[in-house]
Every structure is written in structure tokens, then in C-alpha cells.
Design a protein around this nucleic acid. Structure first.
Ligand SMILES: [Mn+2]
Ligand SMILES: [Mn+2]
Ligand SMILES: [Zn+2]
Ligand SMILES: [Zn+2]
Lengths: 150, 150
DNA sequence: TTGCACTTTGGAATCATTCCAACTCATTCG
DNA sequence: CGAATGAGTTGGAATGATTCCAAAGTGCAA
């Protein structure tokens, strides 16, 4: 069962939504709480399952809507790996993703700013990039689910 | 109309396929030739259209099969951007991709080995990556096909 | 010749995602 | 007050890229 949003997180939600003229709703609160509760890059279906425990009437369409809304107002990032279902990540710090092909799990990899700068520098003149996506694919040892922060 | 494979490219095709116990077929020759002819990261549908000009009976299923085969034996790379159709790239040198959101075009960005090494170095111990995918997303100036130059 | 492995093909099936029209609910307006 | 408005939610239908499948085709080897 998902814990309610902290006052702080609810404010972040409220403010981010406000930037695009949108409102806090019970569905959005729960979907956001689900993302914060377990930062394992859940798919829409994962989010749906987890959220329904707190709100049985919630519809899949609404989960799609909420997540799209959050991406639109910059609250979460979309994470794509090859042709798999889209995953969602509430970690707003610049980071790369590592997809473990043995377990299917996706891990955040911290991305030092100077590496990011290096990368930008390889673009020829005339190329202006808004976003850079970096994803590793391979195997990792020993990554049982860790207790999550917050 | 697609030009036939050079002797050199046909050999590369033949040898790569052989590594996985597979054969050169007329369909595979044409699909490979299409990829080499215009390195614009075509989708399956693009490849299908172009290949059919030389082989009207070719089926879409076969194009999927050929491309999957090529990826399997390392002849081409798959290129994914967000949720769009998969694109294919015969450039085997390590490189990143830049997706121009204005035109939809995908450009190769050369990737210096030392940058690649930098990137690998940010992985914590225990993470072993087979592949790294880097994609930029933004706008680029001046990449319209020049009316004058071919 | 026959058998076998590999291929190709058209059409059906899958499945994540998007679309749509009806409905709820809160706010604004007359 | 009611009615109109508008955002948000919902279930189900539609979409569309990709995969699956079963029936043929092809070329080589026993
Ligand atoms: Mn792999
Ligand atoms: Mn963009
Ligand atoms: Zn992440
Ligand atoms: Zn490329």
C-alpha cells in the first residue's frame, strides 16, 4: 500500500502542475506517490497495479494520462529501452540508465556534469541538443532491491 | 532503383551471415543494398518501399526477417528514438545519434574513443556493459538536402 | 531422388499506446 | 439558486508496429 505524499512532495506536485495550468487530483497524487515510493522505473502497467491497491477504481487510461501530464510538466522522465514498454523515473538529476538484461531491472547511473559537457562537445556546429539520453545495456552483479530513499 | 552490391559488400554480407550459419539470398542482398545506398536510418517501412522497386514481390515480413538477421550477425545496428518505429543503420563505427525534431531526420555523430571510455568509467563496479546507446534530441540548422549538391 | 535446413510469404495475432464519447465534479455566470 | 463551462476520469474501441504462424519454395547433401 502506497504511503501518502509528504507535504513537500505534494507541493512539488502542485507547483509543477500549475506551470502548465493543471490541477492536483486524487489520481495524480497516487500515481505520483507510486513513482516516489519505489524508484525502480516501473512501466505503466506496474504503476497501474501498484496504484490500484490504494484506489481500486483507477483506470489504466488515467494512469497513461497522469504520466503523460507529469512528463509534460517536467516532474518525471520517460525511459525507453529498445522496444520495451516505456518506464518512468522521478529522478530529476541528470543520470544515465543501465538495463540489466539478466533481470530486466533498470538502474540509475550518476552522470557527472563534466561527462555531460564532454558529450555535448562532440556535436558538430549547428546541432543544438535539448536532451541527451544515455543507456547502458549489459549485466550487473548483486543488485537485490535496495531500501529506497524517502 | 538500388544499385547492386559491390563485390566487397557482397563478401561482407556473405561472411557475416556465415558466422551465424545463414545464407545469402536475393532478398537479403537487396535489403542490404538498400541500407548501404542511403544511410539515412530508414524504418522498416522505408526499406520495404525502396527494396520493392527492385523486387516487387518482396514481402514486409521478409524485410523484418532480413533486418533482424542482419542485427543478429552484427551487420547493422538498430536505432530507437523514444517510441518511434525502429530505424536501421549500417555504420558499424561507434557513433551516437542526433534526432532532429524539426525534420525527423537522424544524423550520425562521431564518437571519439576517449569519450566512450569516459562513459564506461562512470559505471560503478559490478556493472558490465555490452553496449552503450547515446542519443541526442534537438534541432539542427542547415541539414536540408541542398538543391544543388546531388 | 529424397530429406533436411533454411527462407520467404500473406495473413492473423499481439500488445503497448492512443483515441473517443459519456460521465463526474467543481467553478463561474446570469 | 440552476445552467453553462471546463478539466479530469473512465471503459472500450481503434491504431499501428511488430511478432507469430503455417504453408510453400529452394538448394544442397545423403
Ligand atoms: Mn544484449
Ligand atoms: Mn523535444
Ligand atoms: Zn532513472
Ligand atoms: Zn547511425
Amino acid at each position: 500500500m502506497i504511503q501518502k505524499l509528504s507535504e513537500h512532495d505534494r507541493e512539488k506536485l502542485q507547483e509543477s502542475l500549475a506551470t502548465t495550468g493543471q490541477k492536483v487530483t486524487p489520481q495524480r497524487e497516487i500515481v505520483f506517490a507510486v513513482l516516489l515510493a519505489k524508484r525502480d522505473h516501473p512501466t505503466v502497467e506496474d504503476v497501474f497495479q501498484r496504484a490500484r491497491e490504494s484506489m481500486p477504481g483507477l483506470s489504466l487510461a488515467t494512469v497513461y494520462n497522469c504520466l503523460e501530464t507529469f512528463v509534460g510538466c517536467g516532474l518525471v522522465r520517460q525511459v525507453n529501452h529498445e522496444r520495451e514498454s516505456t518506464r518512468y523515473c522521478p529522478n530529476l538529476a541528470p543520470h544515465a540508465h543501465f538495463r540489466d538484461e539478466a533481470t530486466g531491472r533498470v538502474h540509475d547511473i550518476e552522470l557527472p556534469p563534466e561527462i555531460l559537457q564532454n558529450l555535448r562537445s562532440i556535436l558538430p556546429p549547428g546541432f543544438n541538443s535539448e536532451t541527451i539520453e544515455i543507456s547502458f545495456h549489459g549485466r550487473s552483479q548483486d543488485h537485490a532491491p535496495r531500501p529506497s530513499s524517502n
